[in-house]
Amino acid sequence: PPEQVPELVYEQSRLKTGRLTALCTGLGAVAAGARPAQVDAMLAFGEQVGIALQMLDDLTALLVPARQNKAGEDLLSGRPTWAWALAAQGCAAERYRALARYARVAVRRGQWQAAARVLRGVIEQPGCRPAHQALAAAAEQVRGQFPAGPGLADLLHDLAWLERAYD
């Protein structure tokens, strides 16, 4: 059902990309000799960043012309992506169901580009804003946990670089 799609996509992203990113940031904190509370903060930060990067990956697959083959992969495999989550949040339930039916039929006919075009039209308004907001929230959270200094500045610089890589 449309009302369950956003939570499904969130959990999928959290468990897939979020937890892997958390593992990386947590191990980095441990290797740097961080205290347990700092390791926990880096785990939470990594999870948030992973979810937000998955959002960017899913959304730019539809919105950035150079990445649209990725949208084709997602549509052909029937993956629940952030584009579907935004569509479920932004459409009335019946419109969402009609969109999903149209996409299934178009994909079966080998016309995933048509399905991508229609889905892109539905999500263009929010675009990548939810992903950028999630990354900004993760940056704010980590700023509040660690003192200003070169290490934090480097982390935030790298985060901004990752975000720009999806443009």
Rank of each mutant, 00 (worst) to 15 (best):
Q111Y: 06
A83G: 08
Y102E: 09
V5Y: 04
G121C: 08
A37G: 01
A139F: 09
A92S: 04
A87G: 07
E124G: 04
A165W: 05
A31S: 11
G127D: 02
T25S: 11
E47I: 03
G33H: 01
L76K: 12
M42E: 00
L8M: 03
L86I: 12
Y96Q: 04
G28E: 03
L23Y: 15
A139R: 14
A115V: 12
L63Q: 01
G33Q: 05
Q141F: 13
W161N: 06
R97A: 15
A148W: 12
L53Q: 13
A137D: 15
V118M: 08
R95T: 11
A34G: 10
R120T: 14
P6M: 02
R79H: 13
A134H: 00
L8N: 03
T21A: 08
T60A: 01
E94F: 07
L75Q: 10
V49M: 10
P147I: 14
T81Q: 12
W161V: 06
L8G: 00
A115K: 03
R164M: 00
A22H: 06
Q89N: 14
V49I: 11
A22W: 08
A98M: 09
T81F: 08
T25Q: 13
L23K: 07
L8A: 12
L159F: 15
R108K: 08
K16M: 00
H157C: 05
A66R: 15
D154T: 06
Y166K: 05
A139W: 05
A31M: 15
G127N: 03
A71H: 06
E124I: 11
G26A: 05
L43M: 11
A115I: 04
A41E: 00
A66G: 09
C24N: 00
D57M: 09
Q38G: 12
L8E: 05
R109Y: 03
L86P: 09
E94C: 03
A106C: 07
F45T: 03
V142I: 15
P36G: 01
V64Y: 06
A41V: 02
S77P: 02
L43D: 00
G72D: 00
L162N: 07
R143H: 08
